[in-house]
Design a protein around this nucleic acid. Sequence first.
DNA 1: ATGAGACCGTTTGTCCGACAAAGCGGATAA
DNA 2: TTATCCGCTTTGTCGGACAAACGGTCTCAT
Lengths: 258, 258
Amino acid sequence: MSDNIADRFDRIRVPSAYEMVADAIESEIVSGRLRPGDEIGTEAALVRQFGVNRSTVREGIRVLEQGGLVRREAGRKLYVCEPRHSALSSRMSRALVLQDVTFRELFDTALILEVGAVEGAVAHADDDVIAALEANQSRIEEAIGNPVLLSEIDTEFHALVAHASRNRVLELAREPAAILFFPSSEMICRRVPEGGPRMVEAHRRIIDAIKARDLDLARTWMRRHLVDWRKGFVRAGREIDAPVERIFARYALSRSSI
Amino acid sequence: MSDNIADRFDRIRVPSAYEMVADAIESEIVSGRLRPGDEIGTEAALVRQFGVNRSTVREGIRVLEQGGLVRREAGRKLYVCEPRHSALSSRMSRALVLQDVTFRELFDTALILEVGAVEGAVAHADDDVIAALEANQSRIEEAIGNPVLLSEIDTEFHALVAHASRNRVLELAREPAAILFFPSSEMICRRVPEGGPRMVEAHRRIIDAIKARDLDLARTWMRRHLVDWRKGFVRAGREIDAPVERIFARYALSRSSI
DNA sequence: ATGAGACCGTTTGTCCGACAAAGCGGATAA
DNA sequence: TTATCCGCTTTGTCGGACAAACGGTCTCAT
C-alpha cells in the first residue's frame, strides 16, 4: 500500500551481529589503528572481545576477507591485508562479464586507459620500471610463436606501463578491463600469426618513447598497438560487438585469486 | 629450507567446504544457469543439497554476498544479484584510501576517465540521457550556494555523462575514483564561492557540446571543468599531493552500500 | 652439542542441536 | 470486505563438540 508517491524514507535495516563485528574491525583498519601486516586475534579472542558466538565471528571474518581487508595466512593467523593484494579487480571483471559487456566496450575503455597510462609513464617512469620493461621485452623475442607465453608477456607489459605511471588510481582502474582484455590476445596470436612481430615492434617503440620522454610518440604507438589488437580480433573471425564470453570470468578469477 | 632458487610450485590450498559451497553457487550464476532475479533456495534447502552444516552454508553465503553475486532481500529470500547493483566500487575506493593515494593521482585519473566518458557521450548519447542531463542541469541553478546539494548534482552529472557513453566498462572503471573525487567538490564550493557559477557554465557547455556532437568542444569543456576543480582545490588551501583523507572511505562506503 | 623425530597444546574447519525474533500466509472475526 | 490473529517457516544467534592441521617443545640418538 501507499506506493503512490515517491518513497521518502529508506527501509530501516537493523544491523546483525556479524555485520557489527565486521564493521568494528573494518573501522579499526580504515582509521589506521590496525595497520597492514598487523595480526587480528584468534577467533577465540574475538569471541571474548565482542561477546558473541564463534559462528558469528566467523561470518564477520568472511565478510572482511571478501572485502579484501584481512587475509588468512595459509594455515592460521588473521592479518590485515596490504590492500593492493586484494582480489577486488577480478570480482569487478566478473561483474562485467555478468553484464554481458561487449568486446567493443572493453576495447574502447582499454584504449582510453592504456593511452592514459603510457602518458603517465612518459612523465614518471624511473630507471627501475624501465629496466623491468626491458626485461619484459627481452623475453618476448623467444616467445614468438607461443601464444600462451606471448599473451602473458603482453599482459605484464601493460601492467608495467601502468605501474610506471606512478598512479595507483589509474593502475586500479584499468585492472578490471585488463583482466578481461589482454588474455584474449592469446586467441588472436593463435589465429593471426603476424600479430606476434607487430606486438614486438609496438612494445619496442613504446619503451623507447617512454625512455625518450616523447609523449606524442608514446601515445601514437600505444594507440596503434591497441588498434592492432582490434584488427587482429576481427581478422580472427570474432565479432567485436559480441559479449565477452563467460568463460573469461572463470579464467580471470582463477588466475588472480591465487 | 631451499629458498635458494625461485619456487617452482605454488602452495597447495585445500579448498574448505564453505568455499566449495560458494564456488558451486557462483559457477551456476556465472554460467548463466542461475539468472539475476532468480532465487536461491533457503539455507535449509542448501544444507540438504550440499550435505553440509548450516554454519558452513552461511559462511558460503557471506562470501557470495560480499562478492556481489547474491543479495538478501531485506528480510528473507536469497536472490541472484543484477551485477550493476553490487557495491564493489566502494570497496575499491576503500582500497585506494588505504593505499594513501594522493589527490593528484585521483585528479589525473579522473581527467582521463571523464574526458573519455564525454567522448563516448558525444558519440552515443540518446535522447533519454540528454533529457536526464537537462533535468540535472535544471536543478543546479537553485543549488548555487548550497555546497552539499551542488556536489551531489555534480556527482550525478558526471555519472550521467558516463552513462551516456553507453560503455559499461568505462562506467565501472570510473566509479572507484569518482566516489572519492566528486564529494570533495563540496569542500571546494564551501571555500571558493565562485566555483558554483563556473560549474554551472561548464555543465551547460558540456551538455550543449554533447547535443551538438561536437567532440572537441566537449573535450575542451570537460577538461576545463576538471582543471577548475584542481584550481579550486588549491585555492581552498589544500595540498594536491596529500593523501585522500581516510574519512572519505567511510563516507563513500556508507553512501553506496545502501 | 646438534639434528631428527615424537609429543602436546592451540587453532581452525566443521558438525550438531537449539531457540527467539521476524516475516509470511491463511484463517478468523468485525 | 477489511482488519486482526495465529501458526508455520526462515533467519540470526547461541552453546558445545570434535577431528585435522599447525606450532612449539622436549627427548633421544648420533
